[in-house]
Design a binder for these strands. Sequence first.
RNA 1: GCCCAGAUGGUGGAAUUGGUAGACACGAGGGACUUAAAAUCCCUUGACCAUUGCGGUCGUACGGGUUCGAGUCCCGUUCCGGGCACCA
Length: 946
Amino acid sequence: MKDYEFRKIEEKWQAKWVANKTYHVEEDETKKKFYVLNMFPYPSGAGLHVGHPLGYIASDIYARFKRLQGYNVLNPMGYDSYGLPAEQYAIQTGQHPEKTTFQNIDRYREQLDKIGFCFDWDREVRTCAPGYYQWTQWAFQKMFNSYFCTVAGKAQPIADLVAHFETKGTEGITASCSEEPCFTAEQWQAMSELEKSQTLMNYRIAFLGETMVNWCPKLGTVLANDEVVEGVSVRGGYPVEQKKMRQWCLRVSAYAQRLLDGLQTIDWSDSIKETQKNWIGRSEGAEVQIKVADSDAEFTIFTTRADTMFGVTFFVLAPESELVAQLTTQEQKEAVEEYLTYVKSRTERERMIDHTVTGVFSGSYGINPITGEKCPIYIAEYVLSGYGTGAIMAVPAHDSRDYAFARHFNLPIIPLVEGADVTEESYDAKEGIVMNSPMEGKSSLNGFSLNGLTIKEAIEATKKFVSENGLGRVKVNYRLRDAIFSRQRYWGEPFPVYYKHGVPCMIPEECLPIELPQVENFLPTESGEPPLGNAQLWAWDEANKKIVDKALVNDETIFPLELNTMPGFAGSSAYFLRYMDPNNSNALVDEKVAEYWQNVDLYVGGSEHATGHLIYARFWNHFLFDLGVSKKAEPFQKLINQGMIQGRSNFVYRIKDTNTFVSFGLKDKYDTTQIHVDVNIVKNDVLDLEAFKAWRPEFNTAEFILEDDKYICGWAVEKMSKSMFNVVNPDMIVERYGADTLRLYEMFLGPLEQSKPWDTNGIDGCHRFLKKLWQLFWDKDGNLQVEDAEPSADNMKTLHKLIKKVSADIEEFSFNTSISAFMVATNELTAQKCHNREVLKQMVTLLAPFAPHMAEELWEAIVGEGSVCDAQWPAFDDKYLVEASVQLGVQFNGKVRFSMQFPSEATPEEMIQMATSAPEAQKYLEGKQIVKAIAIPKRIVNIVIK
RNA sequence: GCCCAGAUGGUGGAAUUGGUAGACACGAGGGACUUAAAAUCCCUUGACCAUUGCGGUCGUACGGGUUCGAGUCCCGUUCCGGGCACCA
């Protein structure tokens, strides 16, 4: 017997890997590349719990597997160390974020190192390091100096746009923009610098915009749409208000179509693609110009149901629309103002939850361009200013919201679909035959009629009619908003921007990075004054190209710097490119290096980033692709979303007003209070009574009512958190069972992509497996027992069954089933008393991705040289496995089965031939008729007889 | 409300994608070794009936259907999870 001394083994190999630089990676043209990436962590103060490494272990197994298959594998790791979570932790603990961030990083590294990952730490990046965020700032400047050309479908230099303005004004401009201004070359040339700057902001991909933003007073900053859920901030759950503010924004909306199309080229789960599709929210429809009766005014509505133009009975404007003031008549002025006051008093959250019908008549009428009819224009909060044109045509018969509004204000409802009953509710479905378009006896523009068409035909016909008759145009709208890119916080990348007489100017590229200045008071403010306002050394000397004291600001050469910082997603949007070439100070990534690594082949991380990071990173990379910096438009080819590890909490039951605790099975006989108990003093739901007494002073004198001499705890699945006492620390598991057991057990727990509770009970099974495998190599005196004889057929069958299973399972990220296969194979080899060197060597190679420490140790024992990391992944040969069963399905009479062997190259026809002529089959087939015969190669022949 | 994914023993989960349901592991029960404990090993473990005999019946949320054959495919229902949500 030789004990499996996992602590010694793991320490030994972790040291060797560092000393030999085993996981150091260089570009190597002779090998095919494979890029594995984990979503890098933000180092929180709590350290890692057992759920965090799940994805890292999965990607580590895959990375090691690919390496054994001969790929040059890049598997880097770093820290997302700027942004709200890091800063909130610092504020809560009353320390400077720089200090806590570095402490937390050290703690993370220590914990990660114990698990035995194959990260190339020479490539580590930290988003808060100047050498890193230099390129975040650089990319921002590139976005500032670019616009999105809708014809080319890509970013182009803003200088091209300026040149166009110089000669032709806005005529023939095809650029994504916030508003569509109209000016001539002369008008452009007459503009002041400030006016030109403001005009160009309409087009720049990174731009200053005066928009409605999500303002969170408690966090003292604005937030992006994905950082707000149900009217509260994702971080901390604080209320969020809508506020108009001047902020840096990224024109993500310009890339909406490309982000949508790109989804078809990548290998992501359907659910996450679906989430992104919903978030981008493409809808195809028509914009129609509506003239206002007795006025010169006009407005534009957006509709996806152009076919319902004949059913319009009123129009609705969003309360925030600029047209509201213009279209309100004298008589209605008071009512409208009262309504606007009411709308303003409502928070975002209230508007979301409460959908009662409200609105007010503006006094004006709009003219339906097809029927010529006058319809009242209302103002109502159910129409949103941010989507489409902020104005709609209301068709109560076929839209449930319009219907509710019409019922409330007693407006007419005209059904347009044959057989649709609209007396109780609207008919919203897009199926049916159109009628009343126009109504009998009524006329329409150019005799236009939709009657008799299906709704789908009618939509197309109306869109065509509207654009051909100059009433409007076909338009695609997206729900995807431009990203708010400013934060009124300290712990983030500073903007490389200064303001010269109010005009934002970029700091010259060669002066980057602009480093985050030290400040005494970095706390956010409820009024939104950015903490960088407290920095003394924070002004730009344009002549000498350096940062100077802000007291020196003057009108000629020294200007104030931007006080906002960038949001958390800035640094995490292009980090995968930086890993390729992390120390390059001349470029984000060297041309040749980028050419070699291309993009990420496998990206592993949580699905909670679906509408945040995974949209921003795609957008950012599409932009860098336009610049030629990134070599693939899509950054992450395959995405795996590991499930969340939940906590499994345990409870004890205290009888009210006593210090007596009753076991789970008996608790219903008493009036009890349920109390969380630390899962680390419970084993298989049985409470360790002594440990419980020692746990907290008040339980010192506790008494117990037991069942079967045991105290059984209740349990529930909850979020893993300190307050539930269900946090399990990986360090503790590694100490008790070793890293290899932890790695195995995390994978054995269940399918990778599924959320599941952590339950330390059960880990023994994985530990036992490693011990059993270990014992295969040593005799009872502890000497190596390996021989070089010819392996038996059984040995080879077991081995190749395993090779086949494990190879297939790893490709499908089905690690739990491959571990089961290992357990079966180990039991079989033990029963076969297999000590064959070649068989064991291949077994060790298969094990290497899962339990690398043990694999190295055993490799050293039986091979004697090199590292198992440089071994070759065993090839599967099915000649050892050929066997199939024949089933004879006897109609109405049950089934008969027997086994027989087929050559592996047998075709289905040959298999049927062989099966039917086999003597075993003959006795069933005699006098019967074959109804159907099916053969699945190498598996089964199924013959149905009658 | 719309869209997506799912429901299998006491528990986590397998099932060659339409072919012996419950692999593997945990837990539980019984036994061996041991002064004892730990560790290890062996047997039983979906339910019910039979168990001095090979065995039988029912079973993959529920109700139907297709098929020689359904956990798997189709229709309907219930429940849980995720996304979007006055998006016109």
